[in-house]
């Protein structure tokens, strides 16, 4: 187990290293931040000074090595724009994104598993067919469009929910959260539903496919032959089996949820790190972009690790020692 985790973390370091190189050179190629950062009125001397201060006068490999050296000490550089450490900037915004993503994930799981199981247990019923049709919509409608439509319906026409922002927040363990107040929940609801739609469709499809497969297994018939009640068969025998693929996919998708919350955050002006990234790309704020991606990579690696561990708990046939990390 320990060996497994250590091996995983070493792999993560390698991935982060390559990723940082790719992003660094990518942003380097895209454009020169100097054009955006320094106003046109500034004279040549001011320009030179500013460029030297940001270290942008050095050739690419020197800039990269300098970045790498600092990164190893935990310093991912200062934002060109905010003149604050990039890491800090992102970590400040992280709780908002995490709250949104977790809430969306919760919605997807809490609604998706029962709906999917229902559709799998009674595949010919009208309800099942409506659920499956709905899930196709969830897959195919673009997030930003659904977001705008929701905003139009619930915020503009009905006026039930606020259209943008995060609302009232309070601190729990030093993290800003909004689910503790009614105003916060009202702000959170629409973006979370918007972000969860795609994953909800995915969970429904996975649960349905799993249920349809498991329900015909001999062990379900054997459980019935034991006289076990239908509820127990569904809630224990079927559910525990379908949780294996659901947890695996959901876990892996959580990283995607965080990464792709960019769209939802932009539509609903949610002050998370996705919005920060979009703004930074617009301003070519390289340290922030690199720091953001580094954090996302770490997130993915950690999520994968957690999924593997959960997987081994859910499926007794899988043991971590046997897994090729």
């Amino acid at each position: 187990m320990t060996v497994f985790i250590i091996r995983r973390l070493m792999q993560a370091a390698v991935v982060v290293f390559f990723m940082s190189f790719l992003v660094f050179s990518g942003v380097f190629v895209i454009g020169d931040p100097v054009d955006i950062l320094i106003s046109d009125e500034a004279d040549e001397e001011d320009r030179e000074r500013a460029i030297a201060a940001l270290g942008l006068d050095k050739p690419f490999h020197i800039q990269y090595l300098r970045f790498l050296g600092k990164a190893l000490q935990g310093d991912l550089g200062e934002s060109f724009i905010f003149e604050e450490p990039a890491l800090l900037l992102i970590l400040e915004r992280m709780p908002a994104t995490m709250e949104l993503a977790l809430f969306a994930l919760l919605l997807a799981v809490v609604l998706g598993i029962p709906l999917g199981m229902w559709a799998g247990l009674k595949p010919d019923s009208v309800a099942a067919k409506s659920i499956m049709t709905g899930s196709i919509l969830g897959f195919s409608l673009p997030t930003f469009w659904v977001g705008i439509m929701m905003m139009m319906l619930f915020a503009v026409m009905l006026g039930w929910l606020p259209s943008t922002g995060r609302g009232e927040t309070s601190e729990i363990f030093g993290l800003e959260v909004s689910f503790t107040s009614w105003d916060g929940i009202r702000h959170l609801l629409m973006p979370a539903i918007n972000l969860s739609l795609f994953k909800l469709a995915l969970v429904i499809r996975l649960s349905r496919a799993g249920t349809k497969e498991v329900i015909h297994q001999d062990y379900i018939k054997f459980a019935r032959a034991k006289g076990v009640s239908r509820n127990r068969i569904i809630l224990v025998h079927v559910l525990k089996n379908i949780m294996i693929p659901v947890v695996t996919v959901i876990g892996l998708e959580f990283g995607g949820l965080v990464a792709f919350s960019i769209v939802t955050e932009t539509v609903f002006a949610w002050p998370g790190m996705g919005k920060l990234l979009i703004d930074s790309i617009g301003l070519l704020d390289r340290p922030v972009i690199v720091a953001y991606l580094t954090i996302i990579v770490f997130l993915f690696v950690i999520i994968n690790l957690v999924v593997d561990i959960l997987y081994s708990i859910l499926d007794p046939r899988v043991r971590l020692q046997e897994m090729k990390a």
Binding site: A223, V228, I244
Partner: peptide, 19 residues
């Protein structure tokens, strides 16, 4: 195929009695 792969033997036996 007759035993549920994700449940322990005791779970599968006890439920048969408690049913």
């Amino acid at each position: 195929m007759t035993l549920n792969p994700v449940l322990r033997i005791d779970t599968q036996m006890i439920e048969a009695i408690q049913a």
